[in-house]
């Protein structure tokens, strides 16, 4: 009798672990990601549809992400967009009384969910590898990255890149180039080079609308030479160690 109880207990404990070990990437995506992420497309076509989005679209993940980054991130998920996926849900126009604004003015503040650490499913190493493989198979936008190629002859330094990002195109207003330095409504740029494929960066900066028709990132009409420099800069920037300087 005791043995029977022991075995049944063991079965109860072990079987979910076995089941999850047997789960392949596509099943992980379907069971754990699809409730928040859009895995099928197309991207939201109107502003109201966009406001319903709870998490970044993943249906073109294979065109977008670097696999090695996905594997690491899925094991240790952290926030990438300081103001959340939809910034309008996470801002408040009544700042605390203690806040002193620039030139005596007060400004809108981040509020709510984004002030707490990101809640996201965590995967173990094997699951992350499987999920990343499944994500890398989602490549519907081949035509958008087809002609794009990173020019290896372009040379750029951290200083000249920052000049482009800050003074020439003003990206810094919405994006951060180091933790806490830059705006909030766009995703952080200091991990972009490690996170995204260079071809995707070239294509997305060139015309964000192609990927996400109603996104709040403008088309800055970046010149082809500057585009190459910016992408080189982002890759260079992602190799910096930001923990060391703090």
């Amino acid at each position: 009798m005791k043995r029977l109880i022991l075995f049944s207990l063991l079965a109860v404990i072990v079987s979910p672990a076995l089941a999850s070990a047997g789960e392949d990437g596509a099943a992980i995506l379907k069971n754990r990601c699809a409730s928040c992420h859009d895995l099928k497309g197309p991207a939201p076509q109107t502003i109201r549809e966009l406001w319903k989005r709870d998490a970044p679209d993943l249906f073109y993940a294979g065109n977008k992400f670097r696999r090695e980054w996905l594997v690491e991130w899925l094991q240790k998920p952290v926030r990438i967009r300081p103001a959340g996926v939809n910034y309008l849900r996470n801002i408040n126009s009544t700042p605390p009384k203690s806040q002193k604004g620039k030139a005596g003015r007060k400004f809108d503040v981040l509020w709510g969910e984004v002030l707490r650490p990101l809640k996201h499913v965590k995967l173990n190493r094997a699951e992350a590898e499987a999920a990343a493989d499944a994500l890398m198979d989602l490549r519907p936008h081949y035509e958008l990255v087809a002609g794009k190629k990173l020019d290896s002859k372009v040379k750029v330094t951290l200083d000249s890149g920052e000049l482009l990002i800050d003074k020439v195109y003003g990206c810094l207003s919405c994006h951060q180039i180091e933790p806490g330095y830059g705006g909030y409504t766009g995703p952080e740029l200091y991990t972009a080079g490690a996170r995204l494929q260079p071809e995707f960066l070239l294509s997305y900066i060139d015309r964000p609308k192609n990927w996400d028709p109603k996104i709040w990132m403008p088309n800055m009409h970046v010149k082809p030479d500057d585009l190459q420099k910016i992408v080189h800069y982002l890759i260079l920037l992602s190799k910096e160690d930001f923990d060391a300087s703090n």
Partner: peptide, 28 residues
């Protein structure tokens, strides 16, 4: 809708030039 989606991030929720991105800007 357009103002809310695209302009409020810098010009503020009431259009007073006090958007959430303002702390990052050298020009208001």
């Amino acid at each position: 809708l357009n103002y809310k989606q695209y302009c409020m991030q810098c010009h503020g929720m009431h259009g007073k030039g006090d958007g959430v991105n303002v702390p990052a800007m050298n020009i208001l």
